[in-house]
Simulated assay, not measured.
Amino acid sequence: MCSVCGCGTLGHSHSAEHALDDHQPVHPYVFTPLAQHAHVSGLTQARMVQIEQDILTKNNQYAQENRQFFSERAMLVLNLVSSPGSGKTSLLTETIHRLVGQVDMAVIEGDQQTSRDAERIRATGVPALQINTGKGCHLDAQRVGTALKQLPMQTASLLFIENVGNLVCPSAFDLGEAHKVVILSVTEGEDKPIKYPDMFYAADLMLLNKIDLLPYLDFDVEQCIQFARQVNPSIQVISVSAKTGEGMQDWIKWLEDERVQQGISNA
């Protein structure tokens, strides 16, 4: 198992885009909760905590380099995070369809295996690069920085980073993005924000997805929003359905407003 969060094994991460990740080791991220079980790895709790701090510090250095890259090119960059099956990729492809021709866009896709999601994005005509993390459970700033060198990035463009499906580890890793956007499907239960508070605390926006299914579910929308704001009083919430299009215009307007606030003009 991974010495960080129990999600995988140390070794090599093989990307579908071989030039990106071949022969690059999966870093042994270590989170504080696991330090309570340091005896499993033979390390002391203090040493585990120190490793965690060193890794996050190094990640933040790479994140700052990415942020400088984005700033110099006047790019709006969003880190899309969620659990598996939230409809993240479907929502992203629908978003691209609505913005294509108006805004230059690119996508970095993070998954443990396969390039299926990147292929779905490329089918829209937008460039996408797949990062396969192998046993790893999240993207880190260094891998994103490497990916940036292989994507045709335009000035004043919009970059979506679709993170690995996981509501735990991606919350701790800054990629240099302007905002984390957490996607929560109504099929997951309204208590996810208080079960996984770090993710919802780190996010600036929650997209409540698959609302077309609400008539068939026992899901309390108001309770879910209340839980999210209990964790993060400033979190914004937009209810959407990638399938029917409901709420999509509100999401598109949020994106447009963010671009205006950053002084980014349309392509």
Rank of each mutant, 00 (worst) to 15 (best):
K243W: 09
N66M: 14
E72M: 09
G125F: 12
Q61D: 13
Q50S: 13
I161K: 04
D54N: 13
F70C: 10
Q261N: 09
K88Y: 11
I55Y: 15
K253F: 08
P33Y: 09
A35V: 08
H179I: 05
V168C: 01
I211E: 08
E246C: 03
C5H: 09
G134H: 04
A106R: 11
T93W: 07
G42K: 09
L91K: 00
E246H: 14
D140H: 12
Y196D: 01
S71G: 05
P152C: 00
R116W: 03
A172Y: 13
S82G: 10
V100F: 06
Q68E: 10
Q230N: 12
K135I: 00
A106G: 14
T89C: 11
F173A: 02
L56H: 13
S265R: 09
N59W: 15
W251E: 10
W254N: 12
E162R: 12
H39W: 14
Q262S: 00
S241D: 04
L56Q: 14
N166L: 03
D198F: 08
Q68A: 10
G165E: 02
G85L: 06
A46V: 03
L167D: 01
S83V: 15
S241Q: 05
V182H: 02
A267M: 07
K195T: 06
D198M: 12
L20T: 10
M75Y: 04
E119W: 04
R67F: 07
G134C: 07
G134K: 05
I264Q: 06
G85P: 09
L43C: 13
S185Y: 03
N66Q: 14
H14T: 09
E17H: 15
T57F: 08
V40W: 07
H39R: 11
R120Y: 04
